[in-house]
């Protein structure tokens, strides 16, 4: 399994297929029985703090303002509060959070909180961002909005993303490439290369091509299930 710089790769699988375990191994929170994690050629197996990491829960600290939450990775690195707050200014604009600096997470909508969590993840400043079902707690409409927004913002900030999801549509919309996990014990059953952004029509989600990909993935997942 590999991820190119600037790529969005989705890891698709049913619940319990070990997606999150794999994530935690990459993040260095768990140790693997075998295999190694290489980041830009360097072995980072078992080391935490090497990649940015975001979960389904936004995990914003309720007692810190949005600015306080977003600057957290900078403060943890030892930066001064003032410098950190000044630094996040332009990003708050990009992430559509301008004006919420002094508000507490409880006052924000689910989508905004997730954007703030994403900005915090991004500001941790690692080359690779691990997103574990980042949008699955949101309602359908908000989720779609977040997908479009994410694709737009990702072009501006150039972030390599590994996305864990059980949502086939989400994987197809966001990813450049999809790894499908299936079987028991689960393994990578397929690697699907999707057309580039330029090649995709604006209504990609409604095209036959999209449905074809979906059919293919459902077939792979069903095969995996039949062997259980």
């Amino acid at each position: 399994m590999h991820i190119q710089h600037g790529e969005i790769v989705a890891l698709l699988g049913i619940s319990g297929s070990g997606k999150t375990t794999l994530f935690n191994i990459i993040a260095g929170l768990l140790t693997s029985d075998q295999g190694r994690i290489l980041l830009a050629g360097q072995d980072v197996t078992g080391q935490s703090g090497q990649v940015s990491y975001m979960l389904q829960k936004d995990l914003l600290l309720p007692f810190r303002t949005i600015a306080g939450n977003v600057t957290l990775p900078l403060l943890l690195r030892g930066e001064k509060k003032k410098a950190a707050v000044a630094k996040i200014g332009p990003y708050m604009q990009t992430f559509g959070l301008a004006g919420t600096e002094q508000q507490y997470p409880a006052a924000l909508s689910g989508g905004m909180r997730q954007r703030a969590a994403l900005l915090r993840t991004y500001l941790f400043g690692k080359q690779l961002a691990l997103l574990d079902e980042p949008f699955s707690a949101l309602d359908e409409i908000t989720k779609r909005g977040m997908h479009q927004w994410y694709l737009k913002v990702i072009q501006q900030i150039n972030l390599t993303t590994l996305l864990v999801t059980h949502d086939i549509d989400e994987a197809l919309v966001l990813a450049d490439r999809i790894y499908v996990l299936a079987g028991q014990p689960s393994q990578i059953a397929a690697e699907i290369q999707l057309p580039t952004r330029q090649q995709r029509p604006a209504d990609f989600e409604l095209t036959n091509g999209f449905l074809e990909y979906k059919r293919q993935i459902l077939g792979i997942l069903a095969n995996g299930l039949s062997t259980i």
Partner: peptide
């Protein structure tokens, strides 16, 4: 999960105490 997140951000014990546990 929050402690895990702090760990991925490389936070040491004292920082976790100050930024998360105490407040």
């Amino acid at each position: 999960d929050l402690l895990q997140l702090m760990a991925t951000m490389g936070a040491k014990r004292l920082k976790v105490l100050w930024f998360v546990k105490l407040p």
